[in-house]
């Protein structure tokens, strides 16, 4: 079954997007990312270590950008200005690559988004030619506004980043999906495979996760579990689940009983 989705004009088969942080080493990053089947991977932009041994392996060597779509993110930014600066450096670093994940944080304890600063940054970045996938609250009004501004995908949180609490507000996620004309991806808060499946059953176009895989006891096995959960949740959404009812409904026919 071909069931692709499109972000900024490019088609993707995998609805699982992964982060590349928190792994033990680059080998584990590569193995888990390969097993996940993800076609989009977030990366952070940080200072180089001055005095580092030349030729030390780096992320671009083990997962080259021609094999997986890089999604530079603005994690760690608390102001629109820092986020914009990060995206511009990322574009230079990745030879004109325009796809970015915008995230402007509000608070170190919750890592909840600062939505005001997110609007400011999104507007500047879109005017500057970036394709912005934006991390935001599970707020249908904010999500719609970011879509109307021209973000190519809107990515509400399921729960705080790294918390593993799962989909805390399924009704909001569903409202956001129903109102949207751009892809909606759950970003942050997924803890295990069932959380990812629920996001997909709600109609999300995809899920972006990092800690749930990288922080698992066996990240490579969890990457495999997440791949299956995303596919299962998507198929269940497309198949159309049965309505919930309070009482039973027998599966075997009543006609033809001999007792």
């Amino acid at each position: 079954m071909t069931d692709s989705f499109t972000i900024a004009g490019k088609q993707y088969q995998s609805r699982l997007l992964v982060g590349s942080g928190k792994y033990k080493d680059l080998e584990e990053t590569k193995l888990a990312t390969d097993v996940s089947g993800a076609e989009i991977m977030t990366v952070a932009i940080r200072r180089t270590n001055i005095g580092q041994k030349p030729g030390e392996p780096n992320l671009l060597d083990v997962l080259p950008p021609d094999q997986i779509t890089y999604l530079p993110n603005t994690a760690g930014c608390y102001t629109a200005d820092d986020a914009i600066r990060t995206c511009r450096l990322a574009r230079e670093l990745l030879d004109g690559h325009n796809l970015v994940k915008l995230e402007v944080l509000g608070d170190e304890k919750t890592l909840y988004p600062n939505v005001d600063q997110t609007y400011v940054a999104a507007e500047t970045l879109i005017n500057d030619g970036f394709d912005v996938m934006v991390y935001t609250n599970d707020d249908p009004i904010a999500a719609k506004r970011l879509e109307d501004m021209g973000c190519v995908a809107v990515m509400p949180l399921a729960a705080p980043i790294g918390s593993g609490l799962g989909i805390r507000n399924p009704y909001n996620i569903r409202s956001i999906v129903e109102n949207a004309k751009v892809p909606i991806l759950v970003d942050a808060g997924v803890g295990t495979a069932s959380d990812a499946a629920i996001a997909m059953e709600l109609g999300c176009d995809g899920v972006l996760m990092n800690t749930a895989i990288a922080g698992a006891k066996n990240p490579i096995l969890m990457a495999s579990a997440m791949k299956k959960a995303i596919e299962a949740g998507r198929e269940a959404y497309l198949a159309g689940r049965i309505p919930k009812k309070q009482y039973a409904s027998a599966s075997s026919p009543i006609d033809g009983t001999f007792f």
């Binding site: 590349s20 928190k22 952070a44 932009i45 940080r46």
Partner: peptide
């Protein structure tokens, strides 16, 4: 705070007290 395109490194002269940032892509969520 101004990005220096890689293609112009050879022609870009640094000055005393310049603040230079050199960044790379690393693992991140």
């Amino acid at each position: 705070l101004e990005i220096i395109p890689r293609s112009t490194y050879s022609n870009f002269f640094l000055n005393q007290n310049d603040k230079v940032e050199i960044v790379r892509a690393i693992g991140g969520g």
